[in-house]
Structure formats: structure tokens, C-alpha cells
């Protein structure tokens, strides 16, 4: 099976700052790839380059065997590679339903269909009882779900999730992890940046560790947490006891 996403020698520099350097990996369809690393390791920059937010300085990104390195984020999203943001970015004056419907419409759904699809997705993510409220009134956990719902409205094949659990208290995390698992079970490939190791271990098939913009380790969760370099650079001792899935 050919990889659904293939990143080769990807690099991004901002002036003299080398944010990402020579990162390569493949992601198989239906796979879940966790991306971890200390703050400033280049995780979000990697996502931005992959999602077409800005072009990489070097290297290529292939999606479904097509070179998409120069594609815009909008074109990639319509093609099924969708990202979410670390800081929630709802369309504040719109209702929760409209937020999701506008994404469905961007994919090409007609107005009535877009609304119906948005409603179904809201039911699935458990936001239906907030449907007619303005999105800026949602609590953090609701906003996280809204980000996911909006991405799901695009019928993604690949989801790039940037710290989807950040800001959630432990009791709020498990329902979101369950939701991600159900999205994965529907055949969506997940790449997610995360600091919550419990989620990384529970969800990931493989884990990519970045440090100073470069690949520090790449392997199964149990391989990665046992890697002495990863422990030293990022994990410390506390998470090495967290079970993988």
C-alpha cells in the first residue's frame, strides 16, 4: 500500500532561524501518527508546511501520491487534508451550526445539504444542544469539539490535529480521545501534535519526535518512550511508565 502522506527532507527557515530541518516520514492510510517534542521543536511549523499555510524552504509533501508542496491550505482542505489549530479559532459571530455548515459549503455542499450535514456532525461530536448558540459562547471543551466538527465537515482523508487536548482538564480528555478513535475507525488518517502522553500512547501507531526542528526518533510508541535520547530531550522519567495502546 502506498503512503497517503509522504514528507521528504522537509525544511523551513525564517531568516536565520531554522525551524524545521530535513524531516522525512510516511503515513499509511488509516494510520495514527503522534508528533511530540519540546516547545519550539518545530511541530506546528511542520504542520503549517504540510497543510499549505506557508511553503517549505526545502523538501516535498506528497498527498495521495501527488506532489502538494505548493498547494494552498484551502485547496488541500478541499482535497481532504485538513488541519485544526492549537488555539481555537471559531467564527465568533456565527452559530455553532453555521460554523460547521460553512465548512461543508466550502467542500461544495449546497446550503440545505450543508446545514443537514453540519447537524449530523454536531450530533456526533455532542454539540447539537449548542447548535443555535454563537460559537464564541462555547466553553473550551466545546470549542475543541467545534474545531473537530468543522474539520469533519470537509470529509477529510487526513486530519492534522494541533494539540487538540491542550487546555482540557483530564475528565474532558477521554471523550475527545474516544471521538478521535471513532474518526480513525472511519478510515481517517490522523497526524496529531500533542503534549499529553496518555493520548499519544493511547492513539498512536507510530510516533515522530522532533527536537530543534530535526527528527530525534521515529517508531512505535513503546520504542520511542524507551529511547534514551527522547527521555533526555523531552520525556524525562515520568512518562516512561505510561502504557502504550
Amino acid at each position: 500500500m502506498s503512503p497517503i502522506v509522504s514528507v521528504e527532507h522537509l525544511g523551513k527557515s525564517f531568516g536565520g532561524l531554522r525551524a524545521v530541518h530535513n524531516v522525512s516520514f510516511n503515513v499509511e492510510p488509516g494510520e495514527v501518527l503522534g508528533i511530540i517534542g519540546p516547545n519550539g521543536a518545530g511541530k506546528t511549523t511542520l504542520f503549517n508546511c504540510m497543510a499549505g499555510m506557508f511553503p517549505p524552504s526545502t523538501g516535498t509533501v506528497h498527498y495521495q501520491s501527488e506532489n502538494v508542496t505548493s498547494w494552498s491550505d484551502a485547496k488541500l482542505a478541499r482535497a481532504g487534508m485538513v488541519r485544526t489549530f492549537q488555539l481555537m479559532r471559531p467564527f465568533g459571530s456565527m452559530t455553532v451550526l453555521e460554523n460547521v455548515a460553512v465548512a461543508a459549503a466550502a467542500r461544495g455542499a449546497k446550503e440545505r445539504d450543508a446545514m443537514a450535514q453540519a447537524w449530523e456532525i454536531l450530533q456526533r461530536v455532542g454539540l447539537d444542544h449548542y447548535a443555535t448558540r454563537t460559537s464564541k459562547d462555547l466553553p473550551t471543551a466545546g470549542l475543541k469539539r467545534l474545531e473537530l466538527a468543522r474539520a469533519m465537515a470537509l470529509h477529510p482523508k487526513v486530519l492534522l490535529l494541533d494539540e487538540v487536548l491542550a487546555g482540557l482538564v483530564p475528565t474532558e480528555r477521554q471523550p475527545v480521545i474516544d471521538l478521535l478513535l471513532s474518526i480513525r475507525d472511519n478510515g481517517v488518517t490522523l497526524l496529531f501534535v500533542e503534549h499529553v502522553m496518555q493520548a499519544v500512547m493511547a492513539l498512536s501507531d507510530r510516533v515522530l519526535v522532533l527536537n530543534h526542528g530535526e527528527t530525534l526518533a521515529y517508531g512505535t510508541p513503546s520504542e520511542v518512550v524507551a529511547n534514551p535520547e527522547v527521555i533526555e530531550a523531552y520525556l524525562g522519567d515520568e512518562v516512561t511508565n505510561v502504557d502504550s495502546k
Binding site: 497543510a51 499555510m53 494552498s72 491550505d73 484551502a74 485547496k75 482542505a77 478541499r78 485538513v82 488541519r83 489549530f85 479559532r89 471559531p90 467564527f91 465568533g92 459571530s93 456565527m94 460553512v102 465548512a103 466550502a106 467542500r107 468543522r150 474539520a151 465537515a153 470537509l154
Partner: peptide, 16 residues
Amino acid sequence: VAIREDEEAASSIGIP
């Protein structure tokens, strides 16, 4: 309206 609220977010959901 989506573009007015957040141009980057609008683009990220496929709006040209």
C-alpha cells in the same frame, strides 16, 4: 463573514 472573523481559519476549511 467567515473570512472577516478569521481569514486563516476560513482558508484552512477550504474557502478560497
